[in-house]
Every structure is written in C-alpha cells, then in structure tokens.
C-alpha cells in the first residue's frame, strides 16, 4: 500500500476545491476507511457510459467477476465477486469510488484489482503483452471512467 492515506479533513476540502482538474492516481486522497469523497474529475458521472464500461471486456469488465441483474441483457456474469444488485443501498458514492480506485484499503484480502493506482505492484507488465512496462503505468481506467461507473452503481438500488 504505497499510496498514502490522508486523514485530515482539510486536505479533503482542498482536493474538492481543485476539482476542476483531474486528480492523478498518485494524488488521490482517501480517508482512513478508503473512502474518496471528492470526484476525480469534478465532472458529473454519466451512468449510461458507466454501464458500458462495466460490460466491456476491454474497459472495466466488471461483469467478469460481478453479477448485475440490471445488465442481464449482456452475456456472462462472473461469480468471483459479490453481486452488485442493490449496491447503492450498501455504499455511498465515496465508498464506491474508494472501492474502485483501490479496494485493498477496505478489503486487504480482496482479489479486486485497483483501477486507479499505478504503483506498488509485483512484476507489472506493459498492459497484456507479458513484457516489462516502458515508463509509468497507466491506471486500468481513466478518472472520468471511474466517475461514470460510480454514477451507474449509484442507480443500483434494487435487489
């Protein structure tokens, strides 16, 4: 867990005040519970685009591990992670954002990837080439992608 966890509420406010800019992966500020209150982009999430990211194997591919009844028109939902039905009743936006950015803070034993973290890995590769990376890693999803997914997850209020 290389990314620092900052506790000070003042820093949270500072991040919020800068929300016109995209927060870089190494600059994300989470509280001690791993929750991230501030948007990563300052732009409202687009839930429709968030759903597409969740389905796409080339993007979030959340369905690889999670079942989502509202997405049952799309084939193959995994069983590795918990169902996301009703997830918005269990987590608020800050919690969902924190889980997607780096689930290890809340669940150290989780196998869920960190979608917005670029350091602290063992033998990271250059995407799916199997080769060593050249330069800095890219996060698995862009900041706005994560905001869009959070926006979609917040619509999942039904079981």
């Amino acid at each position: 867990m290389k990314r620092q966890i900052m506790l000070a509420a003042g820093l949270m406010l500072a991040a919020t005040s800068l929300q016109a800019d995209v927060v870089a992966p190494n600059d994300v500020v989470a509280n001690e519970y791993g929750e991230i209150a501030a948007s990563l982009t300052g732009q409202a999430g687009n839930p429709q685009r968030g759903a597409e990211i969740m389905v796409s194997r080339a993007a979030g591919n959340c369905l690889a591990c999670h079942q989502v009844s509202a997405l049952d028109e799309f084939a193959w939902h995994g069983e590795v992670g918990p169902s996301l039905d009703g997830v918005a009743t269990r987590w608020d936006e800050a919690g969902l954002r924190g889980l997607i950015v780096n689930a290890d803070v809340m669940f150290p034993d989780s196998i869920m990837p960190s979608f917005y973290r670029i350091s602290g890995y063992t033998r990271p590769g250059d995407a799916y080439t199997g080769k060593a990376p050249e330069g800095e890693l890219s996060p698995l999803l862009a900041a706005q992608d994560i905001e869009d997914v959070v926006a979609y997850l917040m619509t999942l209020t039904d079981y």
């Binding site: 369905l63 690889a64 995994g78 069983e79 590795v80 290890d104 890995y121 063992t122 890693l137």
Partner: peptide, 23 residues
C-alpha cells in the same frame, strides 16, 4: 500476486475454482 491486476495462482485456482470468471 503478480501484475497490475495483483492476482496470484491461488486467487483463481485455490479460492475460486468452480466459479465463473465471465464466461
């Protein structure tokens, strides 16, 4: 746990065998 997805052999093949990962 290797790679940017931080997966060990055990994560899939000891703790999740029998489960679907997508298809």
């Amino acid at each position: 746990k290797y790679g940017q997805l931080e997966l060990s052999c055990a994560d899939c093949h000891e703790n999740n065998y029998g489960n679907l990962i997508r298809a």
